[in-house]
Design a protein around this nucleic acid. Structure first.
Lengths: 345, 345
DNA sequence: GTTCACTACCCAATCGTTTGGGTAGTGAGG
DNA sequence: CCTCACTACCCAAACGATTGGGTAGTGAAC
């Protein structure tokens, strides 16, 4: 449609073609409220807009942001995009940013503090307008630094007290699982708790533990096993749980679907049939959960929305608003992996 | 370390501080070969570099590319980042681009031709130096247009004749699976073939079929079922296969791990034990395959490398080199889902 | 003591926009 | 006829870097 690669035609070209001054053309193509401030005659304005459309004029973003000091670029930093959870959140970001006419850089930090720093510097040196941080560690010292440097940013997925974030209500999510397992009659449970530096892991675990205890249950220290977030991490953790000396739990809560899948594998190799001998519940309800050979119970977190909200928050910050953290409510999806009613009934 | 947000200090500031002209500073900080062309005295050069490092000078990329007409930005377009395969490839891109001092935009097209176009225009209007296209459709008319508009680009994952691409040798991959299933004694096989517009799907299917036939096997038309690439797609396809009238196959090749997982689910609900009653082989060997309750046989494709190679190719194109497509070799990983030897032996 | 070739710099234009501040021209009011 | 307030524009200076083309100054050769 546009014919040629955008960028060929400049404001000056348009102005010359129409016998106008570039500044006039700029004002016309720029705003609406401005036009009223005496920018141009309606007729001229229309001529300008018509030509602009016809030749497919699109302003040079480099030139624009050189002048305006705004790039309309958002930086997104996540542990890894190959983590489905973050990938879906990024899709939400992509959509929301697109709607607001922003573009996004996204980089993987592998949850490594050094890489985190490096990627952030790269983004800042690209002059992004703001940052969405999806890999915050609970000892968030980088964040203080960013605040001090007056970099606009918000957190996503993981929350840190004192900073604006878009997350799932992980504490509630954990509690839902505790309630469910308790209701199913489980009294000996273990938790595959994830990485201790991630608020998601900590909050889900904490939410689970405190609800379970408030129901009258007990959870010994040894029942909580920290682990990586991936399948291997889950496998290893479940293995150590099932191999443990204390009474083998009848249910395991993994704070992440992938860890849960790993746990299913481990259960299998221990000769346990998941859903009958051992209940397993995951978190996030990724697209896989429902499709597994033994469908996995999981807490559905609104990943797409979390991404979208993160963008909205950040745009708020950029706009100078005082923004509040948003915690979206999760929903428990019970499936075969933890549904014992058919056994009991 | 850097103290303040980069961008605060400019070339002019440096020059003023040192009593030099900005152009001199620019030349010093720019190249090495240039320096020899009479840029500055070694002593001065050192002074400049020291100060630059001390104050954390980093050139404004907008200003630079306004002048040089190069943004050091690569555009990446994929169907969806929530497809693990593409996410991993993107990690490869991220790394390679980083090494070469480029940054990347990545956008999701959902394999929708309209969105595809729109996202491309966005990237071009951002003045990316080149494009990595991960969602090419076999009727690649957009590509001709891009060529005509002289946009530098390469394909990734999916190949189209006549354009440079970084892919897995999908035909070979399909053939490996055919050979394996044949060797295991399977004579009735079905294929969950994926989307017919994707070269990955077509080539893997074709590779499988032609090897199987050359071994003396037959594959009726009805044994090839096109499908979406995700778990649901695989489930539906497998369901229709297992429900079919013709003799139920003893093995299914799904051209994608997620489709294979869906197929496992379907097999399950048909009362078939995968690995004993029915063999299933996937493709890509994503991190899940080995961890599933029944470990999934899969063709390992070097996803990370494909991403890296795509960047290398694109940089070649940008450099004016004549680049050749690269097809990386896959490796078959046999696991429980298709290993019948313990039954036969 | 010119010319010559360096060395080590400086000058100024330029990339494409934006934006604060003009200024001709017009019609009305006094 | 002068002032005044518009309207509908134009001017020029930025923004921060790059780059082709100078030019003082120095030492050596003739």
């Amino acid at each position: 449609m546009t014919g040629i690669r955008p960028g060929s035609v400049t404001l000056k070209d348009l102005a010359a073609e129409l016998g106008l001054h570039p500044s006039t053309v700029s004002r016309i193509l720029h705003g609406k409220a401005d036009t009223a401030r005496g920018a141009a005659a309606p007729v001229t304005a229309q001529r300008v807009r018509d030509l602009a459309k016809k030749v497919g004029y699109s302003p040079d973003p480099q030139a624009t942001s050189l002048r305006t000091r705004r790039t309309h670029l958002l930086g997104v930093i996540v542990p890894r995009l190959s983590d489905l959870v973050l990938a879906v959140m990024y899709e939400g970001i992509d959509e929301a940013a697109d709607d607001a006419n922003y573009s996004t850089f996204v980089m993987n930090s592998r949850d490594d503090t050094l890489i985190q720093r490096r990627k952030m510097e790269i983004m800042l040196s690209r002059r992004v307008d703001g940052l969405i941080i999806g890999d915050a560690h609970l000892d968030g010292n980088i964040l203080d630094e960013l605040t001090e440097r007056k970099v606009p940013f918000v957190l996503m997925n993981r929350a840190i007290a004192g900073f604006a974030s878009a997350t799932c209500d992980d504490t509630l999510g954990g509690a839902l699982v505790a309630q469910h397992l308790w209701d199913q009659g489980h009294r000996d449970v273990s938790i595959i708790a994830g990485e201790p530096y991630a608020s998601t892991a900590v909050d889900r675990t904490h939410g689970f533990v405190s609800r379970f205890r408030s129901l009258g249950g007990t959870i010994p220290e040894g029942a909580i096993v920290w682990s990586r977030f991936d399948t291997t991490g889950g496998h290893t953790a479940a293995d150590s749980i099932l191999r443990g000396t204390h009474p083998r739990p009848s249910a395991i809560f993994a704070v992440n679907d992938f860890a849960a899948i790993g746990a299913m594998g481990a259960a299998n190799s221990h000769g346990l049939h998941v859903g009958r001998d051992l209940a397993i519940v995951g978190f996030n309800d990724t697209s896989l959960a429902a499709q597994l050979p033994i469908a996995l119970s999981s807490v559905r977190s609104p990943m797409l929305d979390i991404g979208r909200v993160a963008v909205k928050l950040l745009l708020g910050v950029l706009n100078g608003d005082a923004v509040e953290s948003v915690r979206l409510a999760p929903v428990l999806c019970v499936r075969d992996s933890s549904d014992f009613t058919w056994v009991a009934g």
